[in-house]
Each structure stands twice: as C-alpha cells, then as structure tokens.
Design a protein around this nucleic acid. Structure first.
Length: 581
RNA sequence: GCACCCAUAGCUCAGCUGGAUAGAGUGUCGCCCUCCGAAGGCGAAGGUCGAAGGUUCGAAUCCUUCUGGGUGCGCCA
C-alpha cells in the first residue's frame, strides 16, 4: 500500500473527470503528473505538479487547471484541504484517518509492509564480488559484497525474481600463479626452503593449502616438472580458495545462488558460440587498433587482431577478443558468460564492479546489447574505494607490512551488522571512510547505533507494557482504536512511516540501496524526537498508565515504526537489536 | 590525448523520472533528565550547490564549454 500512488490515482481520476466535463482537453499524457511529499511540511501532506505539467499541452493557464482540480479533489473524503500555491502547485492535506490507516497497514503486513509488485514476473540477475579465486577477500570486496547483496534483497522486496551470482575467474593466468605458489608451499611442507619469486603469491593463507596438498598427494609431485602437477594443483588450490571465499562471504551474511565458473566455458564451444552469435550480426572482424593517443606504450606496434565492433553499441573503440597468438583475451569469456546470462531469460542484468573496472562498463554493455539485440538492459554499478581509519588516523594497507586488511579482519572486529550498515551509508559511487573505532561508537553520529537504538527503544516500551500487564501482541495492536492517534506529533510519525513504500520503490528503480539506510536514519530520528516529546506532554507517551486502550493505540504506532526499521534492516542484511547492552 | 565517476555548510555527506525558502550529521554557541532508555531531545549560527553559458513556467538535478580531483585506456584478469 503506497499512499502516494493512491492519491496520484485520485488526481488522475479527477483529471479524467475534468476531461469528461470538457474542462480539460482530451488526449493529454498524464505520465509526468507526480504526487510527492512537499519539501516543506507547512505546504501540506502531498503536492502535485499536475497543473504545471499539463498547462502547456492543454494550452491553459496552470492556475486555471489547478483551481478546478482543487475543487474536484476537495470533494473526496480523503482530502481535507486542497489549495493552489505558487505558480500552480496543488497542495493537499489529507484526512487523519489515512495516516492512521497506514499504521494499520504496517501492523497488518508486518515485515512485508512496503513490498511492491514493481518487479513482478521479472527475473533479474545480480552479479557481485566475483573476486579472483587467488586469496581471501579484502575490504574492497567487502563493499561490493554488501552492496550487491543489499541490492539483491531490495529487488526481491520490490517483487523481482532475483538470482545472486558470483563469476569465478578460474580460467586465466592468475590461477596458474596460484597453483605455482601453492606448489611452493607444498614443497615447504616437505622440508624444503622456498623463496617466492616476483609474480607469485607469498601470502600465509596458502600454507594450509600446502599442508593439505601434502596430505592428499604425499611426495608424488616433489621434484616433478610443472606439466606433471600444474593442472591438478591448480584445481585443488582454486577449490580451496573458493572454500575460503565462501566462508568469508558467509561470515558477512552473503550467500550466493550461483557460482559460475569461467573455466566451464572453455573447451565446450561456448565461447566460440557466443562469438559466432556476434559474427552472425557482422560484429566480428580482423583489424588493427590505433594506439591510444597521448600516452604511447613503449612497445607499441600495429598488430592484427580479432575485434568486436563494440563501437556499434556505444563503445569508444572496438575491443580485441583474441590475442595475437590466437588465444582468447579475458573479454572473450566475459562475453560468453554474459551471453549465458542472456540465454537464461533474465529480464535485466546487473553487474557490480569495483571502481577500478570502470573502463569495462561500455564494452560489457555493448556486448550485452549486441547479444540480446538491445532487449536485455545491463546496469553496471561501480563501488568506490573504502578508506580505512583507526582513531581518526588513516590506516595504510600494505601486504609487506602485514597490515593488509581482509574482509575477515573487518567482520571479526566490528561484526557483520555494523560492517554492512556502514558500507551502505554512502552512495555506491562515492568513496567511503571506514573508521574502526567510530563505527562501534554508541552515539548519535553513528547511524548504525542510532537506528538500532530506535528499534531497541520500541522493544523496550513493549517490554514495559507487558510488565504492566497490557496485552501488546500484534493482533491486539491491530485491533486497537487507532483513531486515538490524532495529535499532530503522532500523525507526523505516521507520515514518515507512510513514506516507506514509496522510498522502497525509488530505491528499487534506481538500484540504490543506500537510500534505505538514509531513510531508516530519518525514521529513527522521528521516533527519538517523538519519544522525547513524551517528557513534556505525557499524553504522547506510548505507555499510558491505567489506560490499556490508549496504550495499545500508541504502542501500535511505535510498533509500526519498529516493523519498518526491521524490514529496512532486513533488506540491508542487518539484524535489528532488541536492546542496546 | 580520450572515456567514465565526482565537485553541495568549516568537515563528512543526503537531495526523489527537473519543483516552492537546498537538508542531515559533525564542529561552534545556548537550552532540556523527581517522569516510557539523556547511548537522547530542542534551538541558533553557518550556502553565489566548482565556474560560465543554454533548455524550461521552474535547474543542485538535463545539455555545452571550462576548472579542479579520482579511475581506466591493444597480447593483465
């Protein structure tokens, strides 16, 4: 139930009635007519731009339209006041019963309040993390993981059939490096002193892999040339790394539906098939690329390569799919992978990349556009850097100094809930400061705490009510006489609750889960503010001594806030706190 | 050189398919605990929304140019 859509429907109805009465020309497009919360609450509860949007096509003055429309709307019982303001805005004040009904709807729907049918019957694929299986996840991956996961939950909440997917880059040279590094650890387990040359991974996390290799293979590979052990150890190590990554993700509360292996594309004709699809569209050719202007690579020489004509689909230059030695570039399996997603009948694709992969956005979009004949939209969300701080001091990451911060370090120190919420307190494409001390601070400038505290406060009130012998289970609250919520203060809280379904749709439409976090902060603020008003005006307190009926109505309001906070935190993957101890 | 992202209060950031007098937090200054959790609340001060043009009834938002920052740019994924 979205009150804003409901009132918008009412406005459209009134406009149509005006047309029927000849007060407005036929054939107007109402799609730009919006009903929104006004910037300033003094203007009313909702405002519509209908008169201004329609003035030009209707060849009428905005105020003339607005005056008639205001009269029509005022006839409806739901509208208590409709007045024209400014150049032609129409401000509406709604009957209190509408806000009371919002509370009722929230209590009735519980966690499902605000769910939308926006994405009904549509399948969307969200690909995120997709880190190389060569080591544990670090902080950068953490942000991508949290963002992608919250986005997936958000899309689920607005009705999409969501698939959470991880693309395992297990087909390139980096897994060979992993295998060689693991082999060194294996030799180490056999008592050899090993050195890690440039281009291998010296990380401690491979020691365990070395141990397991020894347990599995004994001394079978000792002293053997690479061709004997590379393939087996590569598979073994890759699997071990994926186990590690899966465990890391789980610690953060992220669970994927699909792990898609790049390797599975090789030797099966799937890459060839995807490229053939492009070739059939005339988008593959042999050619020579121009060198990038301005920065000239030292070793540049013109080379003929197999190219994808991505410029036909919005890219700046055509992209190579084959290296000069005839083997695939990394882009080729990426094309095949996205082709696979297209053929799995998704209505929309979303890729979450780190900002350092921003250069691949255009070519990936071009590929999907070409492969789906423009039918499947691909949205690519980039997550910016996370800057770490400790006690307000920048915290430099260095592998050599051993201060390399992994996802596990973060989760172990501050917990998954705090990690997730903080990572979502910035827009995905804005850099994020993450201060290990600040995020654990229990104060107002820590949004995690502030929102959790609001939820805990409601829980506390409910506990108090129970202790006082007042029945406050959800069905009792639902049956309470909510018309008792008639003060301005209470209606204001209800108004904020009423924004939730609309906010969810906006966030879902823009693929921006951070909006949920910001809204929850505002809602928490309303709750805290209202709570405080009870100090002065006891009639606003949730718990009304000696009056169970009044208490139940007021606690109903509090409970509605808690339900929305809980649902919102649920989307972000954060557990609501029952108490702050 | 080109492409993408960013530029909003002293600081960190929101800002809805373009809407009214641009909002939070923090910092500064002031106020509020015999009473549902003060881990909180209320108020004051603080802005030519990087600059200049353009589109529009209306621009922080869309377009162009410029300035300043970040990222990336053919046999690395």
């Amino acid at each position: 139930m979205n009150l804003f859509s409901e009132i918008r429907a009412l406005v459209i109805e009134a406009l149509e009635a005006m047309q029927a009465e000849g007060k407005l020309p036929e054939g107007l497009d109402f799609k730009n007519v919006a009903v929104e919360p006004p910037r300033d609450a003094l203007h009313g509860d909702m405002a519509t731009n209908a008169a201004m949007v329609l003035a030009k096509p209707a060849k009428m003055k905005p105020r003339d339209i607005a005056d008639v429309l205001a009269g029509k709307l005022a006839e409806d019982a739901r509208v208590s006041v409709a007045e024209v303001a400014g150049p032609g805005f129409l401000n509406l004040r709604l009957a209190p019963v509408l806000w009371q009904n919002v509370i009722k709807a929230a209590l009735e729907a519980g966690q499902d309040f605000g769910r939308s049918a926006m994405g009904a019957d549509k399948k969307v694929n969200v690909e995120y993390v997709s880190a190389n299986p060569t080591g544990p996840l670090h902080v950068g991956h953490t942000r991508g993981a949290v963002f992608g996961d919250a986005l997936a939950s958000l899309l689920d909440f607005v009705g999409y059939d969501v698939t959470r997917e991880y693309y395992i880059n297990d087909g390139g040279a980096q897994v060979d490096v992993l295998a060689r590094s693991s082999y060194l650890r294996y030799l180490e387990q056999h008592g050899e002193t090993v050195e890690f040359p440039e281009g291998t991974y010296p990380g401690d996390y491979l020691i365990e892999v070395g141990e397991k290799l020894k347990a599995q293979y004994g001394d079978k590979f000792v002293g053997q040339p690479e061709e004997v052990w590379l393939k087996e150890i590569r598979e073994f190590a890759t699997e071990a790394m994926m186990d590690l990554i899966r465990a890391d993700l789980k610690a953060l509360g992220v669970e994927m539906d699909v792990f898609f292996s790049e390797k599975s594309l090789y030797g099966t004709g799937r890459i060839e098939g995807a490229l053939e699809t492009l070739e059939n569209k005339g988008l593959i050719y042999e050619g020579v690329l121009e060198p990038p202007k301005g920065k000239k690579p030292e070793d540049w020489e013109p080379r003929e390569q197999t190219l994808f004509r991505s410029t036909d689909h919005g890219d700046d230059v055509d992209r190579p799919v084959k290296k000069s030695d005839g083997s695939w570039t990394y882009f080729a399996p990426d094309i095949a992978y996205h082709y696979d997603k297209v053929t799995r009948d998704f209505d929309a694709l979303i890729d979450v990349f780190g900002a350092d992969h921003g250069g691949y956005v255009k070519r990936m979009k071009a590929a999907v556009s070409a492969l789906s004949d423009g039918q499947v939209p691909l949205d690519i969300k980039l997550t910016q850097l996370v800057k770490l701080f400790k006690n307000g001091e920048p915290f430099k990451m260095s592998k050599r100094a051993g201060t390399f911060v992994t996802l596990r370090d973060v989760v172990d120190q501050v917990g998954p809930d705090v990690t997730r919420f903080v990572m979502l307190t910035r827009k995905n494409d804005a850099p994020l400061d993450f201060d290990f001390d600040k995020v654990l601070e229990q104060s107002k400038d820590n949004p995690v705490f502030y929102v959790q505290y609001a939820h805990a406060r409601v829980c506390s009130v409910i506990r108090k009510a129970e202790a006082a012998g007042i029945s406050v289970d959800d069905s009792t609250l639902l049956a309470a006489d909510l018309t008792k919520l008639d003060s301005d203060a209470e209606i204001n809280v209800a108004k904020k609750v009423a924004e939730w379904p609309r906010l969810v749709e906006i966030a879902g439409r823009t693929n921006e889960p951070h909006r949920i976090a910001f809204y929850l902060y505002e809602l928490a603020s309303e709750l805290h503010s209202h709570y405080k008003k009870g100090d002065e005006d006891h009639s606003l307190r949730f718990l009304q001594e000696g009056d169970a009926a009044a208490s139940q109505a007021k606690i109903g309001l509090a409970r509605a806030v808690a339900v929305v906070i809980s649902a919102g935190l649920g989307i972000l993957g954060v557990t609501p706190a029952q108490e702050m101890r």
